[in-house]
Nucleic acid binder design. Structure first.
Length: 370
DNA sequence: AAACCGGGGCT
DNA sequence: AGCCCAGGTTT
């Protein structure tokens, strides 16, 4: 139990709900109460903005209109549909969970808390979102938006990165949900965070609960929520081979598929290799980098002749910053047997293979040039 | 609790 | 250039 007054809580719930009913956005997954649509949208919306998700959502539902269609699709197709959205384990987990729902629950998204939360890729937030939005169950769905709104309105100065703070807010949300309004109320909380109670420069003057917002009254709305900041990504310097085929592979480019686990699992990419730390710090010259690439590929069973520097590129993950230097190479021989995860492709082959954004950019500009 | 896992948009 | 985001899984 907490010490906030019943009056402050009732006011908050009442005014927020009324505001939502007149201001909610018309979003594709709000047009039906289809648990599958809500599930897909919630997975896509993890760490991703609404405007980015909308076109992906339309394409995804068009290609995989039902849980069974998603369960029966080749994983390759699902990854391709997710290409550019990031956090690709979301896509693989979603399909894995769709297969589970098809087999165990007759293709219907379960409405039981444990069953939902046991699905791959579904954690505490998404469990609450599915149960409340799809089935109107009074479960909390506490994401970054909700924690920001609550930390300001109730002036909560606990670090939102701590599990105990999230647990406290989940308890608070359960008290705040008006009878029979879990779906609308949880969406209202997130909608306010997205549209009004924004991270920077919140629009307090248009906020439906401004009058009793303790954070604003204290003049602290800009400094809440309290959040420990993440470590900056570590830099990595990588040499990339853009290998042009010869003979039967003339006009094609060599690509490879990443391992099935870890960073960018099962995505396609240009061959590349981490530059030794010493060389990276010294700003190794291109000749040295090209020689390193040639040697690494030779060890893999691929003979190439690096030719010249082609372009530079960068790619930032949550924890790594890639500095890429791309080198044009020519295949030295018609390797009759490439390693299993390597192949040559032409431009049109990219329509069915999923690449991380940075390789998509490099390949598209290359194929447009030649 | 901390590390791992993408990418885009805003300031 | 740094900050933020409609988080989950693994260790």
């Amino acid at each position: 139990m907490n010490t906030y007054s019943l009056e402050a809580k009732h006011y908050f719930s009442r005014e927020l709900l009324a505001w939502y009913n007149r201001s909610k956005r018309d979003l594709p997954w709000r047009r039906h109460r289809n648990p599958y649509y809500i599930w897909v949208s919630e997975i896509m919306l993890q760490q991703t903005r609404v405007d980015t998700v909308i076109p992906y959502f339309h394409r995804f539902i068009d290609k995989f209109p039902s849980i069974e269609a998603l369960a029966d699709a080749p994983e390759e197709d699902v990854l391709k549909c997710w290409e550019g959205l990031g956090y690709y384990s979301r896509a693989r987990n979603l399909q894995s969970a769709a297969r589970e729902v098809k087999e165990q629950y007759g293709g219907q998204v379960p409405s039981d808390k444990k069953a939902v939360s046991d699905l791959k890729g579904v954690g505490p937030y998404t469990t609450g979102a599915i149960l409340s939005i799809a089935y109107n169950q009074p479960e909390p769905a506490v994401d970054g938006n909700v924690m920001r709104v609550l930390s300001r309105y109730f002036l909560i100065e606990e670090d939102i990165m701590k599990g105990s703070t999230r647990a406290f807010m989940e308890g608070l949300v359960v008290e705040l949900i008006p009878e029979g309004e879990a779906s609308n109320f949880n969406q209202a909380l997130m909608e306010l965070g997205a549209l009004v109670c924004t991270p920077k420069s919140p629009q307090c003057l248009t906020c439906p609960v401004m009058e009793h917002c303790a954070g604003r009254i204290a003049g602290m709305e800009e400094s809440l929520p309290v959040k420990t900041k993440a470590k900056p990504p570590r830099p990595e310097y990588r040499a990339v081979a853009l290998v042009e085929g010869v003979g039967a592979e003339k006009g094609k480019v060599l690509i490879r598929q990443r391992p099935s686990e870890g960073l960018l699992a099962r995505m396609w990419e240009l061959p590349h290799e981490l530059a030794p730390q010493q060389a990276a710090l010294a700003g190794a010259d291109d000749a040295e980098q090209m020689d390193m690439l040639r040697g690494v590929l030779y060890e893999e069973g691929i003979s190439v002749v690096p030719d010249h520097f082609h372009m530079q590129a960068e790619h930032t993950f949550s924890h790594i910053h890639w500095n890429l230097r791309v080198y044009r190479c020519t295949a030295a021989a018609n390797d009759s047997s490439l390693p299993a995860n390597y192949r040559y492709i032409e431009a049109k082959d990219m329509e069915e293979l999923a690449f991380p954004k940075v390789f998509l950019t490099i390949l598209n500009s290359y194929f447009a040039m030649v």
